[in-house]
């Protein structure tokens, strides 16, 4: 269930005055079981890249193989989209049906499954996102709270039982409590859907949850790193213009003042500073 990307490029509106090269020769692989992060400034090509994964954008140049399916050749798009679930920003804006049950069932229904199958998956998905099926199934999605709506939208994608889940800024617009809840939810979902790809601007989130991170800048791939590799690499951070997670930022401020510490998380930083103090006191 991996995504293999080779020399992928994409140009919007080619041969017009609005031509824009969104992706430039991207090559990397998302392995099965990864909690994979994609970061980069607005306009770096992140959305264009993930839109390739479920076939919303046709491969223009290069090759892309998802789950063994070569997206450069003819393929069954329903099969692909059933395996690769995609959740866009503010997914609650796509809710439309009369009841929560029907909205969540939209995906499985489009896959052509039997009524019994659809029902089974709907129940499963709604429970998976932490909602009570019986309490919520007949309610209109529009009378739910913001947090509930987002969960229902997520359930709508999970009901397709994807093997790869792609999320574009899943915590956008949520307050800190809401953010934590959604991220923990996604972590739980990983047990059912082994591979997760997450775009985020929030460095604290990325460093806390992802095991590998791809950094995009102006359509080019700057590299794939682990969190500690990335946040210790000042060159890349500056080049891309990323915002460090707070502990790493403080560590950097200290290094600038001649205090040599590293720390990507709060605990790491506290330990490092205390250790240094211990050394200096001695």
């Amino acid at each position: 269930m991996s995504i293999v990307i080779k020399n992928l490029s994409y140009i919007y509106s080619p041969k017009t005055p609005f031509e824009k090269k969104a992706l430039d020769d991207i090559t990397f692989t998302i392995e099965d079981g990864d909690f994979f992060g994609i970061i980069g400034q607005t306009g770096s090509g992140k959305s264009t890249l993930i839109s390739h994964f479920n076939g919303l954008i046709k491969v223009m140049s290069g090759s892309l193989t998802v789950n063994g399916i070569d997206l450069g050749k003819k393929y069954d798009y329903k099969q692909l989209r059933g395996k690769v679930g995609m959740v866009f920003q503010y997914p609650e804006y796509q809710l439309f049906d009369e009841t929560v049950e029907r909205d969540v069932g939209f995906g499985p229904k489009n896959l052509g499954l039997s009524q019994a199958e659809v029902k089974e998956r709907t129940v499963e998905a709604i429970e998976l996102v932490g909602l009570d099926f019986n309490a919520i199934k007949d309610r209109s999605p529009f009378e739910l709270s913001g947090g509930q709506m987002r969960r229902v939208a997520l359930a709508g994608v999970l009901a397709m039982r994807p093997q790869i889940l792609v999320l574009d800024e899943p915590t956008a617009g949520l307050d800190p409590r809401g953010k934590k809840e959604i991220l923990e939810l996604i972590k739980r979902v990983k047990e059912h859907c082994p591979t997760i790809v997450m775009i985020s601007h929030n460095m604290d989130e990325i460093s806390a949850y992802c095991n590998r991170i791809a950094v995009l800048g102006k359509g080019k791939l700057r590299g794939v790193f682990t969190p500690s590799e990335l946040f210790g690499n000042e060159k890349i951070i500056d080049e891309i213009g990323l915002r460090l997670p707070t502990p790493a930022y403080i560590a950097r401020l200290l290094r600038e003042r001649g205090v040599p510490v590293q720390g990507a998380t709060e605990d790491e930083l506290i330990k490092a500073v205390l250790a240094l103090k211990g050394v200096r006191d001695a």
Binding site: D204, P247, E266, I270, V273, L274
Partner: peptide, 19 residues
């Protein structure tokens, strides 16, 4: 259920460690 700013949290941790 509200957090304090991250800088405050880290400061707390350092104070606990004797700084």
């Amino acid at each position: 259920g509200l957090d304090m700013p991250p800088a405050c949290r880290i400061a707390e941790g350092l104070r606990k460690g004797g700084m």
